[in-house]
Design a protein around this nucleic acid. Structure first.
Lengths: 230, 230
DNA sequence: CATTTATGATAGTAATGCTATTATATTTGT
DNA sequence: ACAAATATAATAGCATTACTATCATAAATG
C-alpha cells in the first residue's frame, strides 16, 4: 500500500470519537498504542489505564478522545474497513472484467496480512489480527441497534454493498450477494483464528493459502460463474 | 425434540464446571435462569450477582458451580452443541443417502429455532439466541489455547468432524470439508443476527428461510453435488 | 441423631470503567 | 509579547465487577 494514502480518518464516522485522534500527537499515539496493546493482551484485558501507562499519559486524557473502549474498537474496525475499501478500489482500478474484479477483491479481503517491516503509524498486521479476534465484540452487543442508527457500521456496510454489486454484475439473478460476501469475509477471519487456535475446525492444505483459495472457489461456484484463469 | 432425551450433561466436559449443575435443584435453576438473564441483558451486563438475585440465592453459591461467567458460557454452548448433535443423530437416523443426510443436517444447524410453548427446563429458543450472539466470546479470548487443551470445545469439534465426514462421503476429493461446515454454521448464525440488527449486511427474500436456503445451496455447489429433489 | 454436605449471608479486595477537579503546559489571536 | 483559550497531566473519588473468605444454618445421609 502506498504512503500516498493519507491516513485521514474522514471516512470514519465522527461520532465514534469525542475528539478526532488524527488531530493531535497524543491522539495518534493513542490509536497507535491501542493497536499494539489490544493485539498483545486482548480486548477484555485492555483498559485505558494500561494504555495511558504505555504512552506515558493517563486515563483521563484518553477519555477526552474516546468515550469507552468499545468506541475505540469501533474506531479501529471502521478505520480498517475504510482502509480495506481504499485498498480494494486501488487494486481494482485497472481491471474491467467483473470476474477478475471479484477474484481480486476476495483475495484482498481474505488473504493473510503480512508483518510489514516499515514503521507505519498504524500497523496493518496487528490491526488485521484485532479485526479477526475482536471486531465481533464491537457489534455483538445490546447497543447494536443504537450504534447502527448512528452509522457506526457504515464503513463495513458500504464495502459489503460494493462487493455485492460486483457479484450482481456477474450474475444479476443471484439471490444472496450480501450473505455470500459477509459469510466469506467473516468466515475467512474465523478460519484464520481457527487455524491458529482451534485447528480441528479447519483444513490444513500445504503449499497454498487454503483460506483464500476456499473463499474464491466457494464464491464462484455459489454464483455459478467461471473463475478467470490465472 | 422428544422429552425422552435426558438432559444429562454427560457430554459436556466436566472441567467447565466446579460442581455439576445437573446434580441439584440449585444447579438447574442456575443454568435455567442464566439462559433467561443472559438472553435478556447480554453477556457483558450479565453478572453472578444479578443471577443470584433472580434465583433468590446469592453470588457465592453460584461460584460453587462455575468458576467464572466465561466458564458458564462455555457450559451453555457445549450443552447446545451436544444437544444439536443429538438432534442431528436423531434426525438422520433413517436417512441412508449422504446427500439427504447433509441437507437435513444443514437444515437443523441453520434453521431458526422457534419459541417453544412447552415449559422446558432449558429454553432452546433462548439458548440458540445466546449461541448466536455470545458464543464467539467463549473462544475469542486469550485463553483459547489453554481452554482447547482442556477439551472445552470438544462438543463443537466433534460435531464439525461428523459433518465433514458426510461431505467426504459425498465427495471424497473435496479439500475443505471443515472450513465449509464451520463457515456455514457460523455464517448462518451471523446472518440471523444481521437480519435482526444490521439488515444491510444480509438479503431479504420473502416466502422462504433465506438463510437455510443459502446455506444448503452454497454447500452443494461447493462440493459439486446435486441436491436431493424435495 | 451425628456428621457430612450444600446453601445463605455477609464482608472484603483489587481492578474496572468511568467522572470531576485542579494545576500546568501549550497554542492562539491580537 | 502577552492574555486568553485550549490541551494535557495528576490526582482523587465512586459505583460496579469479579472474585475469595468466613461463618452460620439448613438439608441430606449414613
Amino acid at each position: 500500500m502506498q504512503d500516498s494514502f493519507t491516513y485521514s480518518s474522514l471516512q470514519v464516522n465522527n461520532r465514534v470519537y469525542i475528539k478526532n485522534p488524527e488531530s493531535s500527537t497524543l491522539g495518534r499515539k493513542i490509536v497507535e498504542s491501542s493497536i499494539n496493546l489490544m493485539d498483545k493482551i486482548g480486548y477484555e484485558a485492555f483498559t485505558f489505564k494500561k494504555l495511558g501507562f504505555e504512552i506515558h499519559s493517563n486515563e483521563a486524557s484518553i477519555y477526552r478522545y474516546f468515550e469507552s473502549k468499545n468506541k475505540l474498537l469501533l474506531y479501529l474496525t471502521s478505520w480498517y474497513w475504510s482502509w480495506m475499501e481504499y485498498k480494494i478500489n486501488f487494486g481494482l482500478a485497472n481491471i474491467p472484467a467483473p470476474e477478475e474484479r471479484l477474484e481480486k477483491a476476495i483475495k484482498l479481503l481474505t488473504e493473510d496480512i503480512e508483518l510489514d517491516g516499515s514503521f507505519e503509524h498504524i500497523s496493518k498486521y496487528k490491526l488485521n489480527r484485532i479485526v479477526i479476534a475482536e471486531a465481533s465484540k464491537s457489534y455483538m452487543t445490546k447497543k447494536v441497534d443504537q450504534n447502527n442508527k448512528e452509522g457506526f457500521f457504515s464503513c463495513y456496510n458500504q464495502l459489503v454493498g460494493r462487493l455485492s454489486n460486483i457479484i450482481l454484475e456477474i450474475n444479476p439473478t443471484y439471490k444472496y450477494p450480501h450473505m455470500l460476501i459477509t459469510t466469506l469475509i467473516e468466515g475467512a477471519h474465523h478460519q484464520r483464528f481457527f487455524a491458529q487456535h482451534l485447528p480441528l475446525l479447519t483444513d490444513e492444505v500445504n503449499g497454498e493459502d487454503a483460506i483464500t483459495e476456499f473463499s474464491k472457489e466457494t464464491a464462484f461456484k455459489a454464483i455459478g460463474a467461471i473463475r478467470p484463469s490465472k
